[in-house]
Simulated assay, not measured.
Amino acid sequence: MLLHMLLEGIELRGGRALTELREGWRDVLAGGPEASAHELAARRYVITDLLDDLRDAVDPMERHAVAFALFEKTAELLLLHDRRWLGTGKYLPRRLREWNPERAEALTEPLLRGDLVAFADRVDHELIRAGGRVQAGFVR
């Protein structure tokens, strides 16, 4: 994220202007993003759907594709639920580990060893902690 680069990057040229920018944006980074209740519910809705797809899928390629999408959506929900900034690509796992190394490990360990049943169970556990499943009647 550009804000992380601004605040944590190595200064090549900056001086006073860079110092002022860093001072002004430090609190924004520390405060984290604020997701609305509706946005969090919409994310829980997507995760609920993906979780059901993973449990129902029998084709190995489909199961893995759904599992990795489910990881991404779950990691984003966990971070946003706790007002933490997201990342894409390699930065999403990094943000997840920075946030809570133990929960990041618990989520990723079964996925990385290919135990998609245990991974689905862990996602379900995290989904409950974030407010639970969202299904029928939800309007996006």
Rank of each mutant, 00 (worst) to 15 (best):
M1D: 09
L2R: 13
L3M: 11
H4K: 11
H4I: 00
M5E: 14
L6E: 11
L6H: 09
L6F: 11
E8C: 00
G9W: 02
I10C: 04
E11K: 11
L12V: 10
L12K: 12
L12C: 05
R13F: 05
G14A: 08
G14D: 07
R16W: 02
R16I: 08
L18G: 11
T19H: 12
T19N: 06
T19S: 12
E23Q: 14
E23Y: 01
G24L: 14
G24T: 08
G24D: 09
W25M: 15
R26D: 14
V28Y: 00
V28P: 00
L29A: 12
A30W: 03
A30F: 06
G31A: 15
G32T: 10
P33N: 05
P33C: 03
P33R: 12
P33G: 03
A35F: 06
A42Q: 12
A42G: 10
R43Y: 02
Y45F: 05
I47E: 10
I47D: 10
T48M: 01
T48R: 03
D49I: 12
D49Q: 13
L50Q: 13
L51C: 04
D52W: 07
D53M: 13
L54H: 03
L54Y: 01
R55E: 14
R55P: 07
D56F: 01
A57T: 08
V58G: 09
D59F: 06
D59V: 02
P60N: 11
M61P: 00
E62D: 13
E62H: 02
H64N: 13
H64P: 00
A67E: 05
L70V: 00
F71P: 02
F71C: 04
E72C: 04
K73M: 13
K73D: 15
K73L: 09
T74E: 01
T74M: 08
E76C: 12
E76H: 13
L77C: 06
L78C: 13
D82Y: 03
D82K: 07
R83D: 07
R84Q: 15
W85R: 12
W85I: 06
W85V: 05
L86P: 08
G87L: 05
T88F: 08
T88P: 00
T88H: 09
G89A: 13
K90G: 14
Y91D: 15
L92Y: 05
L92W: 08
P93I: 05
R94G: 00
R95T: 01
L96V: 09
R97A: 09
R97I: 01
R97Q: 10
W99A: 06
W99F: 15
P101V: 12
E102K: 14
R103H: 10
A104R: 07
A104Y: 14
E105P: 00
E105H: 14
A106E: 10
L107N: 02
T108E: 15
T108D: 06
L111I: 03
L111P: 02
R113W: 11
G114D: 10
G114R: 08
D115Q: 04
V117G: 08
A118Q: 10
D121C: 02
R122E: 15
V123F: 05
D124N: 12
D124Y: 00
E126N: 09
L127I: 02
L127V: 04
L127C: 04
R129G: 02
A130I: 01
G131A: 01
G131I: 01
G131E: 04
V134S: 09
V134Y: 06
Q135K: 03
Q135L: 10
Q135H: 06
Q135N: 08
A136V: 14
A136G: 09
G137D: 04
